[in-house]
Amino acid sequence: MTKPPTPPSWRKPVGMLAILGIILLWAILIVSASEYIGQMHILAQAVIYLVAGIIWIAPLRPLLIWIETGSFKAPPLP
């Protein structure tokens, strides 16, 4: 016997919208600082944009865990 498919969780679309919101807010923050960043040396700009391009990923881990489990903490390893 096969199990009937489980209905999709409401957390997935809400989580997707939250991810898009985080990306939008982070992009607005970085663009608003671009006037100041643009006045810096090109290597400093590269480092700032590199770090800014990576750091937005940090809040996504707990959000992705919540989407899958319903809790912001990672489940214990078996």
Rank of each mutant, 00 (worst) to 15 (best):
I57D: 01
I19Q: 02
R11M: 05
G21Y: 01
P7G: 12
I57V: 07
Y36W: 14
I67P: 00
A27K: 10
I42Y: 08
P75Y: 10
P13I: 01
G70Q: 03
L25T: 04
G53V: 03
M40S: 04
I42A: 09
P8F: 08
S71N: 08
M16S: 11
V47Y: 04
V31N: 14
L64G: 09
I28V: 15
Y49E: 03
I55N: 02
E35A: 15
A33V: 05
W66E: 00
L29G: 11
E35D: 15
I42P: 05
I48W: 04
A74F: 12
A44L: 11
L77F: 14
W10C: 05
A18F: 06
P7N: 10
I65S: 04
P4W: 09
L29H: 08
I57W: 05
Q45H: 12
Y36R: 13
P13D: 08
T69A: 05
Y36N: 12
I48S: 03
L50Q: 12
A58V: 06
V47C: 06
L25K: 12
L25V: 11
P4M: 15
I57H: 01
Q45F: 01
L17P: 01
L25W: 05
S32E: 13
F72N: 06
I65G: 09
L20E: 11
I54Q: 07
K12V: 12
K3H: 13
I55M: 02
V31P: 09
G38C: 11
I55Q: 03
I37P: 07
P76A: 13
P13E: 06
M16E: 07
I42V: 14
A58Y: 05
Y36D: 12
L63D: 00
P59E: 04
I54P: 00
P7Q: 13
V47W: 10
E68L: 12
G70V: 08
V14Q: 00
P8K: 06
I37S: 07
P59D: 00
I65A: 02
A18R: 02
I57P: 01
L25S: 08
G15E: 06
L63W: 01
G70F: 06
I48R: 03
L64I: 09
W66C: 01
V47E: 08
V31I: 15
G15C: 10
A52M: 02
Q45I: 03
I57M: 04
L60P: 00
M1F: 15
V14N: 00
I65K: 03
I23F: 05
W66H: 01
A74S: 14
S34N: 13
I37W: 06
I57F: 02
T2D: 10
V14S: 05
I37Q: 13
P8H: 09
V14E: 04
V51S: 00
A74W: 09
P4I: 07
V51Y: 06
E35N: 13
S34A: 15
W26I: 01
G70I: 07
S34P: 06
T2Q: 15
A27I: 06
P59K: 04
W66Y: 04
L63V: 01
A33H: 10
S9R: 08
K3A: 15
A52V: 02
L25R: 04
G38S: 12
L43K: 08
E68Y: 08
M40F: 14
L43C: 08
L29W: 11
S32G: 13
F72T: 09
T6F: 11
I57Y: 05
L64C: 08
E68F: 12
M16P: 00
G15V: 05
I22R: 03
L43F: 09
P62L: 02
L20K: 06
